[in-house]
Design a binder for these strands. Structure first.
Lengths: 348, 348
DNA sequence: TCCCGAAGTTCGATTTAAATG
DNA sequence: GCATTTAAATCGAACTTCGGG
């Protein structure tokens, strides 16, 4: 590897001057163009690339951001990761990606590894995460800018990016209602999952405003589970139960897309076609939703934008610590969007 | 941040001794247990964590592996990435994840960034990559152990992990044939995609062996495109054409799962149910396949295992350069597995 | 005082060579 | 020579200080 000293020798200047020129440091104002040219030529000729270890040792900067995902195989992650990657690229940071597998020990080990590497910020993709106050505590004392995607929090040391679950669920029910559906089944999220409550609030608020009765016998809850695919299986089972009950319903509002897929499968098994016999709506707009047969009507989380937003907050946080500014945590709630496809139909 | 010198002061020994003890270096054999104890206690008391920049500067090691994906949103990636992440974790390496977006300039920039950071190995996930000999050249001259997943290559400086496409396609057709299907539609991969040819070979070889005639009018090709989702759309369109032709077929062998999803949609649109009116088989076993309605019969690539395998090769490569051994590139071809679900049915 | 450039120190850990009893 | 410990050199870049014109 060629060092700055070799460039110095080759160009005939000292390594100081080389450093100043190549970094375009403030002092380089004074250095004549001829000198700069010679140095740059020498650097290029030798194929000089600064040693980032040395640079980081001195500058205490890693130009790296730690990304922690709770479960990569959750389809919800993909687009968010894409958004993160893309924005980080633009800002010239590189991501170290870690997948916590929903395990606390793994979380701790990874957090330690990332901190040891002096990542300049942390972005945590808390998908399908069940309340765990300790994790937050660990994060808070890490003392680097941290942004959490997917969980609303009240801390003011950790920023967050979430969807407006309430508005989304509200819109979903409104859609079904506007199509003429009155007897609607609901599969709610697991009680301990952070998203569950606000979504249900959105549903109740619309129902109340529209004077719609919610039949408690048509309301089922997803069981708690650490595995995102389980919401597919549970969606399947709960829908089977719903059908067995023989209480008529013309539409089903599922907690998320995976649940909706499970529901559609159960419906199909029972000889019920979607949307002819029953409309189904999901939440998230996972990649598979538009590919499904029928294409799934759902409430889209602006996932790529959420990733981008998280990076924006992270970079702002990094700049703040560089300039020794204090910044308060930011809490952004993104607006979801109803995507009408073919799994819902009008009764009118 | 607490440094080794502070630990030295606290424990009453020199930083040399502290370093030796904490790293369990060879010389630590001579150091009495009492000394070790005191040093370890001091380190723990102060919460000492070695500065990895300094350590890397000396040791020239980063304990980091660069992972380059050509398109993260391709569902094919997810499980492979999971396999990579998991194995890297076990080996105490951290991945830097980059997504090249199928753009050559982005590839080059990222490669440079990774090399600057002295990643100790490179794993390239060449999904949906169209031949580009220059990329290979760039990789070859990088002089760090490189493993490519998803592309068979003949180079002996770059290792590779691929599926046995030929065997997989062979098995797919065999499955259809064993179910009694004789009039079969085929949607082949784009001509320029590396996987296309071997899969077709597998099909022809089975057809020949079984004495099955392939009707050229039922054989269509996916157009070239940089976008993996396009295979869904093309699958849809080509299947429409197939249907319009009015040549009867009882089964459809799609290039991959995405194509199969598109085909199923087109079939449904035309009022043809899967598998009642037409069986469909895919390739890959993407996450969505088991969730689909109907669940898709397909040929599974052992994706997680492929990720694991790639990391194994990478780590072996790293160890080789550490010990100044020469290792030849390794080329592993993994065996795919037929997964029979409900999108195919027997005619017998 | 302004411009240009160099010598020397620093970042924090590892390692070599060497000094003790 | 052996067990035990350490001073000093090193890794490569960046910054502080200083000197000459």
């Amino acid at each position: 590897m060629v060092t700055i000293r070799e460039v110095a020798k080759e160009s005939g200047f000292s390594s100081t001057t080389v450093s100043i020129v190549l970094n375009n440091a403030p002092l380089s104002r004074y250095i004549p163009t001829a000198t700069k040219k010679r140095i740059e030529r020498a650097a290029k000729k030798l194929g000089y690339r600064p040693n980032l270890f040395a640079r980081s040792l001195r500058s205490k900067r890693s130009h790296t951001v730690g990304v922690m995902v709770f479960d990569m195989t959750d389809p919800y992650c993909t687009l968010i990761l894409r958004g993160i990657e893309n924005s980080l690229y633009q800002a010239s940071y590189l991501p170290i990606l870690t997948d916590v597998h929903n395990e606390r020990s793994r979380f701790e080990r990874y957090l330690e590894m990332l901190l040891d590497r002096r990542v300049e910020a942390l972005i945590v993709l808390a998908n399908w995460l069940f309340v765990d106050i300790d994790v937050l505590a660990d994060l808070e004392k890490s003392s680097i800018p941290t942004t959490m995607i997917g969980r609303e929090l009240q801390t003011d040391s950790i920023s967050s990016v979430t969807v407006d679950n309430e508005a989304g669920a509200h819109a979903a029910l409104e859609h079904l209602h506007s199509l003429g559906h009155r007897e609607i089944g609901f599969i709610r999220g697991p009680k301990t999952l952070a998203d569950s409550a606000p979504r249900w609030r959105g549903i109740r608020s619309f129902a109340k405003a529209a004077g719609l009765e919610l039949d408690p016998r048509l309301i089922l809850d997803l069981p708690e589970s650490r595995d995102p695919i389980s919401s597919f299986e549970s969606g399947y089972k709960l829908t089977e139960e719903l059908i067995k009950q023989k209480r008529p319903f013309t539409a089903l509002l599922a907690f998320d897309d995976m649940t909706a897929f499970g529901a559609i499968r159960a419906l199909a098994k029972a000889g019920l076609r979607v949307p002819e016999h029953c409309s189904v709506i999901g939440f998230d707009d996972v990649a598979a939703s538009s590919l499904y047969t029928p294409p799934l009507t759902t409430v889209r989380q602006p996932m790529e934008a959420m990733g981008t937003m998280a990076v924006g907050i992270a970079v702002e946080g990094i700049n703040a610590v560089l300039e020794k500014r204090k910044v308060a945590a930011v809490h952004r709630k993104m607006t979801p969007e109803l995507v009408v496809r073919e799994s819902t139909r009008s009764l009118l």
